[in-house]
Write a protein that binds this DNA or RNA. Structure first.
Lengths: 257, 257
DNA sequence: ATCTATTTTATCATATATTGATAATTTGGC
DNA sequence: GCCAAATTATCAATATATGATAAAATAGAT
């Protein structure tokens, strides 16, 4: 094994289910001799990517919290989401959750979320969870903004559902792009329905979506138009926020025009 | 440059002030040829530690958000903090902020914070910010729990303030350990006073502190006893929470007895 | 505090991956 | 479709990683 993978493979062993591991466990998992893994771990500890815990265990280190903070403080999308997402959840015509998700490399990840106080369902979209890029309104509203070769490459990196052709899926994305809205039900979470609209900023290279999620049972399609209007106006506000953020930092540490 | 430092040095260039960089900028900063940095960046992008943005800029990637989430979901201290910190802020005898910080390798980092609604001061301790390990009540209440060689090594990794001897500082820590309380003013933020008590769990290898911060102006030392009592009882609850968490996961992916 | 099992670090010859200058290719903006 | 800039590929020289083993340090128990 070579390069960054050597480190990445060790870090990947740490998850919500396995939050601490001994060197022996890591060595077994990555099929490398203990001495090699010790060296790798020592380097990761020195940079704060891992930390040594009690009982010769290791766990994820403070560096992740630190960089996460940097992202929170600098990502215009997240900043704008923190500003508007809760307010949006409060004005929905019925209790629901609001989600801001973004295309990150070739995955879609929720970067901020809020919910009306009385909405108690579990939703898959929570901050930090990578999502399938072709399933659910949230992801599709994002993909609909991507075109040409980049879209092809993205679609190559995932399996489409059985029975759906690449052409058919692209056609669906085209419709979503025209409607500026994607609505799905039961695609990500059973019993939930999602509405999503695109949010983007070209100069910042941000392709995202703003969505809200309701329980399918007590949801009436009559609200659809009103919901779409609310989402569009919030999305507009966020795009304006991002553009202002871009102009504020332009010439400083940001892309030129 | 060799090993993980090659990657770490590039990542370290990204901060709140410089959230996106071109390869040319990185190459200049780390004094390496562009071709080498391109390769490094490519590897980091492949693992989601960086992502390519518009205008040939790169920025921190989704992996940090993902691992941050894993930490939030698994760290018993953070879980307990989320549970109690806001409530604690609400029962303080006067408006203030509450902070949970933890020794992470050889740095102290705030891992959770809350504040009474009417407390409007800026405090340095915010989630994800590394702090000096010898300054402020928060850090000292943590250091007071560390002894022997580990303490020596920690103190070697920092500069003490001028005029303070290593012996004298250790003596102060001893007093804090006996009193189970540290109080400082103007040490971290001007015009603020901080109270901190130790929080720890031996079997989880967690050494932390729970603290609250008030504005010095409208703060009366008469509250000191009451504040200490509130902190101690919250700290006790958190330690119980952590012990339960430890017992729940013991034998699964955690240190043996 | 002393002893002991276990964890962690150090050593070193060999194989392998990294390096960086340059060339070839791709990309994105007009 | 054109052009400048960004990105990737190439390759020989060289520095670094590797892993078996030995030495040292550490933590737990007595």
């Amino acid at each position: 094994m070579a390069g960054f993978d050597r480190y990445s493979n060790v870090l990947r062993l740490f998850s919500a289910d396995q939050s601490s591991l001994t060197v022996a466990q890591m060595a077994k998992a990555v099929r490398l001799p203990t001495s090699t893994v010790y060296r790798t771990v020592r380097e990761l500890v020195a940079s704060g990517f891992l930390e040594s815990a009690a009982g010769s265990y290791f766990r994820l280190g403070p560096t992740f919290i630190e960089y996460n903070r940097t992202i929170n403080q600098t990502d215009p999308l997240i900043l704008s989401g923190d500003e508007h997402l809760q307010q949006l959840a409060d004005v929905l015509p019925q209790p629901g959750a609001t989600v801001l998700a973004r295309l990150y490399g070739n995955q879609v990840m929720c970067v901020a979320d809020a919910r009306s106080p009385s909405f108690r369902h579990d939703t898959s979209f929570q901050r930090g969870v990578p999502m399938p890029i072709t399933r659910g309104a949230t992801s599709r509203a994002i993909l609909a903004q991507v075109r040409g070769k980049r879209l092809d490459r993205l679609l190559l990196s995932t399996e489409l559902e059985s029975g759906v052709s690449r052409q058919g899926f692209k056609q669906e994305l085209k419709q979503i792009r025209r409607a500026r809205l994607s609505v799905t039900r039961n695609e990500v979470d059973q019993g939930l329905v999602g509405y999503a609209v695109p949010v983007s900023n070209r100069s910042l290279g941000i392709e995202a979506s703003l969505s809200c999620i309701f329980s399918d049972i007590d949801h009436s399609p009559d609200w659809a138009t009103e919901i779409a209007e609310i989402l569009w106006s919030s999305a507009k506000r966020m795009e304006d926020d991002m553009q202002h953020a871009f102009e504020r930092i332009a010439g400083n540490s940001k892309p030129p025009s």
